[in-house]
Design a protein around this nucleic acid. Structure first.
Lengths: 232, 232
DNA sequence: CTAAAAAACTAATAAGTGTTAGTTTTGAAA
DNA sequence: TTTCAAAACTAACACTTATTAGTTTTTTAG
């Protein structure tokens, strides 16, 4: 009869959540059974119910804890006194650090939230939408202030957040680079992609619409796509 | 007794694959049952087995078809005669187009491949690794050729591919922007983030290590992270 | 119209799901 | 050492899972 032995400053529920996180990340929430979780802990499945209410509760706890963490960091940055570009950089770095250090839970909150029960789903999606709106608002202010290129802030948010989410594959495939370089390189790409270029730097791609808040819709190279693979 | 009615140029298996794709994307592969698939088609679950071999076969077909598509496009670009930066841009645009036009299957091949049966898993992961290596090699050549900033190509690949994967959320939340603007804005951010800046543009962030192939590991703002939230 | 093939159906199987009930074991306080 | 609650256990339930077998219906070909 094995026992759940919690470390310092952590309840038995924490142990379950941590072990479950690793499985949810690796196999997905639905493909992970309570028996799977119990096994890695070294206990029988029904024993888990002495500490948790349901499988969904584990997922719910993870998702909302992470959401709370990001939201409160965002509030802090919003209130700080610094350039908008620097606010954005701080947020990017926070996301990267979280993705590096709290990989599994952040990944779950990013990819497994869709399995939340309906009651929590709506709440979570609202929080997510709200977070992205506020991030977009910061970007818009940076654009108005000529710190950031007049790109569409919605697209910028989407690009930033999902780029960072890709750190998952860094964890999965052998960490071919140290975490500091990873952070610096990714920050570099994203910030350079956002930053407004000095006026002397104007180049062909921006011959018009500098004031619109959207980059120009230039000609698009349409490529044959899909299984019916026709050339249009 | 309902029937599967295939459109022109598509078998009944294609119908199943298409309907299944929508479900796999929305609910995930594991959370989608054969009965779910059968229901949206308007047929009983066992009837599906007149056209497919197993549930896994549907997933396998999707993943490998998409992998083949990207690989053959990559080969084409590799052989083309143009600058490395332009090669990269073409690849980025292809990924974006695919993500816009073949959203569901590309998403599945990106996120549900882990549920492939072991025999196919290894093959798929190899193809994926190979694709990313070749993309990184193109970036490296662009760096050697001073078209691209001396960033770590591995990080660049990771950033590019996952940024584009984020187009998922564009589909999910109401397409708040038209697809052409989406493409142009995202291409802009990514290409500007990669492109080497003319020498007159040097700025503080690049005061050294221009030749190393990696950007500098500068001081990192460490943020308190995680539930034990300690300041280091 | 008839015969054969294709594709639907119903019924059932064996395995796996989250979870509950009831019981026994464990570890700490008295 | 006794007492008592916390936490483990076993057994079981009610469903759901992918899939097979066997049968009936539908479509196609001659």
């Amino acid at each position: 009869m094995a026992k759940i032995i919690p470390g310092k400053n952590s309840t038995k529920k924490d142990v379950i959540t941590r072990k479950a996180s690793a499985l949810f990340r690796k196999k997905g929430f639905t493909a992970t059974s309570m028996r799977d979780i119990a096994e890695v802990i070294g206990v029988e499945a029904p024993s888990l119910y002495n500490h948790i209410e349901s499988k969904y509760e584990i997922l719910k706890d993870i998702c909302f804890r992470i959401a709370r963490l990001f939201t409160s960091h965002l509030r802090e940055v919003e209130l700080s006194n610094e350039s908008f570009l620097s606010k954005i950089e701080r947020i990017i770095r926070f996301h990267i650090s979280m993705m590096i250090e709290e990989f599994e839970v952040v990944y779950i909150s990013d990819h497994e939230w869709k399995h939340l029960p309906e009651s929590f789903l709506t709440d979570f999606k609202n929080q997510r939408r709200n977070y992205r709106s506020r991030l977009a608002a910061l970007l818009q202010k940076g654009i108005d202030n000529n710190e950031i290129n007049p790109i569409n802030p919605y697209v910028a948010v989407l690009t930033i957040l999902s780029a960072i989410g890709g750190i998952e594959s860094w964890h999965r495939s052998g960490k071919k680079i140290d975490s500091e370089s990873l952070e610096e390189n990714m920050v570099h790409i994203l910030i350079e992609g956002l930053k407004s270029q000095p006026l002397t730097m104007m180049h062909t791609r921006r011959e018009n619409s500098l004031t619109s808040g959207n980059v120009i819709k230039s000609k698009i190279i349409k490529l044959p796509v899909g299984k019916t693979g026709s050339k249009k």
